[in-house]
Simulated assay, not measured.
Amino acid sequence: MTSGGDSGFTVEDEAAAWAARIDAAPSAAHPGLEEWLKADPARAGALLRAQAALAMLGGGSLEDTRAPSETTKPAEDAGSVPRKRWRWLAGAVGLAASLAALAFLDLPRDETFEADRGEVRALALRDGSAVSVDAGSRVDVRIGKDTRVTRLVRGKALFHVAHDPGKPFRVIVGDVTITDIGTVFQVTDDAEAGFVDVLVSEGAVDVEAGGARTRLVAGNRARFPRAASKAPVSPIQTMSAAAMDRALGWTSGQLELDGEPIGEAVSEMNRHNHLQVRLADPARLAGEPLYGAFRLNDPIGFARAVAASVEGTATIHEDGIVISAP
């Protein structure tokens, strides 16, 4: 399927076609759908609206309006969806999408998204925003007519926010509130250390913490006290493009390190795998720097690389991998 800009069809037209194809074969694979969604962040929201409109109109009850002689011809532009049926749906979406949006947005609804160990989830929210949830993390989302609030209950998440000046998108972690100003940003709940880490990839956010408000812009990173206290906010860091890529590497299954402590790298790897890595002598090894890029789903390769960096060994046991140093 071509993009709206190349085909003359709008994003809503194309979303309507995809919604009809998915409705016709909900359990089937749909080649090209993932690429279509990735090409434009607005498409995820358009598809959700089209699916909502189709549900309101009775799902797959639309008739095939092709003439008998047309039934053996390849479908045009919309894959296996008859052209007239798809066009009718596209028109219906134009009439019903706003009703569907109101039906969803007028009634606030709490949704919980969790990612298990070894899993990273990418999700489209009902307002057109998207969130990537890291392994072992949970977010609670509430989107209504006048409200967009997400609570990061634990772990780490990356938010791609559909900006709406009249309805700010807020992320709450403990006593910290992050308010979007049209942006892409990552939030990490380091509950054990008592801090919330905020990294801005695009745009800007306002962070309210410790009785103060701090604005972070693209390339900024800072840590804030998780509980309402007078603990000072850490200095704002300005990150290079390479450092930003390393910090967001988990979204593409990578762990990229540039001198971070081995102990932190082991903890990150363990959140993504059932096969756990342990240090035989944490007091000696945990603080050692580690460099390189590793696949998050390859704990054995990671352990061997760590062992080589400390001139030690990685031994695989039934309950995990142990890294030892001479």
Rank of each mutant, 00 (worst) to 15 (best):
residue 3 S to N: 06
residue 5 G to E: 13
residue 5 G to Y: 02
residue 8 G to T: 11
residue 9 F to V: 00
residue 15 A to V: 13
residue 16 A to F: 00
residue 21 R to E: 06
residue 23 D to Q: 13
residue 27 S to Y: 10
residue 28 A to M: 04
residue 30 H to E: 11
residue 30 H to S: 08
residue 31 P to I: 01
residue 34 E to A: 14
residue 38 K to V: 09
residue 39 A to I: 08
residue 41 P to V: 09
residue 42 A to L: 15
residue 44 A to M: 00
residue 45 G to F: 10
residue 45 G to R: 08
residue 50 A to T: 05
residue 52 A to V: 04
residue 54 L to F: 04
residue 55 A to T: 15
residue 56 M to F: 06
residue 56 M to R: 14
residue 59 G to H: 11
residue 59 G to R: 11
residue 63 E to P: 06
residue 64 D to K: 11
residue 65 T to N: 12
residue 68 P to C: 11
residue 69 S to P: 02
residue 72 T to K: 13
residue 77 D to P: 00
residue 77 D to I: 15
residue 78 A to S: 10
residue 80 S to L: 14
residue 85 R to A: 15
residue 86 W to G: 10
residue 86 W to T: 02
residue 88 W to N: 14
residue 90 A to Y: 00
residue 90 A to R: 01
residue 93 V to M: 03
residue 93 V to Y: 05
residue 95 L to H: 11
residue 100 A to Y: 07
residue 110 D to Q: 05
residue 113 F to D: 03
residue 113 F to S: 04
residue 119 E to T: 14
residue 123 L to T: 09
residue 123 L to P: 00
residue 124 A to K: 02
residue 129 S to W: 03
residue 134 D to Q: 06
residue 140 D to F: 00
residue 146 D to E: 14
residue 148 R to I: 04
residue 151 R to H: 07
residue 154 R to Q: 12
residue 161 V to M: 03
residue 161 V to D: 03
residue 161 V to Q: 03
residue 162 A to C: 10
residue 173 V to E: 10
residue 173 V to Y: 02
residue 174 G to H: 08
residue 176 V to N: 01
residue 181 I to L: 15
residue 181 I to W: 10
residue 182 G to R: 11
residue 190 D to Y: 12
residue 193 A to F: 01
residue 197 D to G: 03
residue 203 G to C: 12
residue 206 D to L: 12
residue 210 G to S: 11
residue 214 T to N: 00
residue 221 R to D: 13
residue 227 A to D: 14
residue 231 A to P: 00
residue 238 T to C: 03
residue 240 S to A: 13
residue 241 A to E: 15
residue 252 S to Y: 00
residue 253 G to Y: 02
residue 260 E to T: 01
residue 267 S to A: 15
residue 268 E to D: 12
residue 271 R to W: 01
residue 273 N to T: 09
residue 276 Q to H: 07
residue 277 V to T: 07
residue 281 D to I: 03
residue 283 A to Q: 11
residue 283 A to T: 11
residue 285 L to S: 12
residue 285 L to H: 06
residue 294 F to R: 01
residue 294 F to S: 01
residue 297 N to E: 14
residue 316 I to T: 14
residue 321 I to M: 12
residue 324 S to N: 13
